[in-house]
Amino acid sequence: MTSIHVPSPIIQVRNLGKYYGNFDPAMIDRTGPEHGTARDHVTASIVAAWGVNFDVAAGEALGIVGESGSGKSTVLRCIAGDVAASTGDVRLAPFEDGNVNILDLDPSARRQLRINTLSVVYQDPAEGLALGVTAGGNIADPLTAAGWRNFGAIRDRARELLARTEVPLDRMDDIVRNFSGGMRQRVQIARALANKPPILLLDEPTTGLDASVASGVLDLIRQLLEELQVAAIVVSHDFGVIEMLTERCLVMQHGRVVEDALTDQLLEDPHHPYSQKLVAAART
């Protein structure tokens, strides 16, 4: 098993946990993979994620794989600030030199992080984009939030990003609602990259797209991850995505990490029975 800790990480996550409902310390031992559920039968609380630890280095992409309900998206959303974590310690090297647990920040400070430290690409473009706004306007949003006030410069930057994400420039001034799913996803990626964030979180970025469209988007993400040297977390139920984008990955089941390994090793030789099941399913 490889170490989940890396030297000088960009993202450092320790004991991250999230539950829904009332807390009872004993419910932690009554839930998880051994019990086959994240739902505590005594309190009816859900332990959506618990005891999650990992580091991500610069230029590295970490995968989190599991079925729906495994807690992988919960982990990502707790880091992004979309969901309030119940417990844990998350530090980002680009923010206050990693001296602050971002989970302690107030909602306002969490939103500030999203402007130029940390970007998220969601499975559903409607979450990451204003559909009634043009592609360029969606990119103008994070730029103006970061203080850009020059129309021409905003246009140039939007053009550059859309070109890089292979959105036809003649669509730049169309509202995103009129775009196809794959195109929306490319705009979402362009927007996420607007302020060159050192950290990128991708939540099922190609799920729901047609296979051929998905592979194009996936290809783009892979190139961008190589090119931009960001620290990335990729959440997916699909080992194909994890294999293509990540070097290391965590396998989650019922709210817990059951295995972490180098991605290619995991695919070759999964240890945990659940990982074996997932890999087997991906190989058929």
Partner: peptide, 13 residues
């Protein structure tokens, strides 16, 4: 106020 700026951007575009 970024959404306000976006509305001005959209208007101009």
């Amino acid at each position: 106020y970024s959404r306000m700026w976006v509305s001005l951007y959209e208007d101009k575009v």
